[in-house]
């Protein structure tokens, strides 16, 4: 098992290295010229070239990449030969000259918003998805099952911007049940935080819960056909134990996989939901950066998000071992 973990960590490191390479060159090959974007249409070529030097874009790409990676490990200094050099300490993901802020600072500011959005949404949909999925499996073919699966189909079909707008329109504007969302951290104002987050959570959970209901239902039904479930019943175990301890445990593996990757993906930012509810999370940050062609920010967010997914993959694989002893002791 220890050897397995070491192997996984090594391959993960290698993957992260390849990731920085891909992300860096992908975005630097984009047709947008950051130097030209630094000043308006009336810019003289001389100023553009000066800015190009200033942004360190006049050196070969390989060297740019070396400095980028070097910055992550040792920090780097931007605008060295100007009167106001910018010190960016390790881990330095770059500097947004458009916003005059370090990329890491921007990400660190936006990450808690996305974190709370993702965690709350995740818990909501897992709770709803798993429980209704089980109920649905247990009442297969009857009206309860059909109703739940009908709801799941509707939830699965509705795009999140539609759900978000409908919720805002009715709950906030029409019925005045909640104040307009305004981001604050839970430690500062818990009430306000909950009032702001409840609709985004529901919006995100609707889509995912529908998927997990169907997944859980299918898993439980599939496992119900297994011989060891019949054995569990033959032992005289209560149906509750048969379902929760024997069937659900055995059907958990694909659910764990999907949950881990979905959560990781969501931690990289929920662009639509964050925008609808004006939440200053990673999704809003990245859409803003894309619209402004703010390359360092796009590169930084992509790197962080992709690392999260790689890390989540590792966690999911390690969770397999926790769930299934056949992986652990072979």
């Amino acid at each position: 098992m220890a050897g397995y973990v070491v192997r996984r960590v090594v391959s993960m490191t290698l993957l992260l290295f390849l990731l920085t390479l891909t992300v860096f060159f992908l975005f630097n090959m984009m047709p947008a010229d950051p130097a030209r974007l630094t000043c308006g249409k009336a810019c003289s070529p001389a100023i553009i070239e000066a800015n190009r030097h200033h942004l360190e874009l006049d050196i070969p790409p390989i060297e740019q990449y070396q400095r980028f990676v070097g910055g992550i490990f040792f920090g780097r200094t931007f605008s060295k030969d100007t009167p106001r050099p910018i010190e960016c300490e390790a881990p330095c993901l770059g500097y947004s000259f458009l916003r005059n802020t370090e990329v890491l600072t921007l990400i660190a500011r936006a990450a808690p918003v996305t974190f709370w959005l993702a965690i709350g949404g995740f818990l909501t949909w897992m709770l709803i998805g798993l429980s209704l999925g089980i109920v649905s499996a247990l009442t297969r073919g009857r009206w309860v099952d059909r109703t739940i699966m009908g709801i799941a189909l509707v939830g699965y079909s509705l795009p999140s911007f539609f759900i978000g707008l409908v919720l805002i329109f009715f709950v906030i504007l029409d019925w005045n049940l909640l104040p307009f969302p305004q981001w604050t951290t839970p430690d500062k104002d818990l009430g306000r935080f909950l009032q702001t987050m409840i609709l985004p959570w529901i919006t995100i959970a609707t889509l995912y819960a529908a998927f997990y209901m169907r997944l859980t239902r299918n898993q439980v039904l599939e496992v119900f056909g297994e011989d060891y479930i019949r054995t569990a019943r033959a032992k005289g175990l209560p149906e509750r134990v048969v379902v929760l301890k024997h069937a659900l445990r055995a059907g958990l593996t694909p659910i764990v996989t999907a949950a881990g990757l979905d959560l990781a993906g969501l931690l990289g930012g929920a662009i639509i939901t964050e925008n609808i509810y004006s939440l200053p999370g990673l999704g809003s940050l990245s859409i803003g950066a894309v619209l402004a062609s703010d390359l360092p920010v796009i590169t930084g967010i992509t790197l962080v998000t992709a690392s999260l997914i790689i890390f989540a993959n590792l966690v999911v694989d390690l969770l397999y071992a926790v769930v299934d002893p056949r992986v652990r002791v072979g």
Binding site: D227, T231, A250, D324
Partner: peptide
């Protein structure tokens, strides 16, 4: 297949 694969 009659014993639960996940339990001792």
């Amino acid at each position: 297949s009659s014993l639960h694969p996940f339990y001792r």
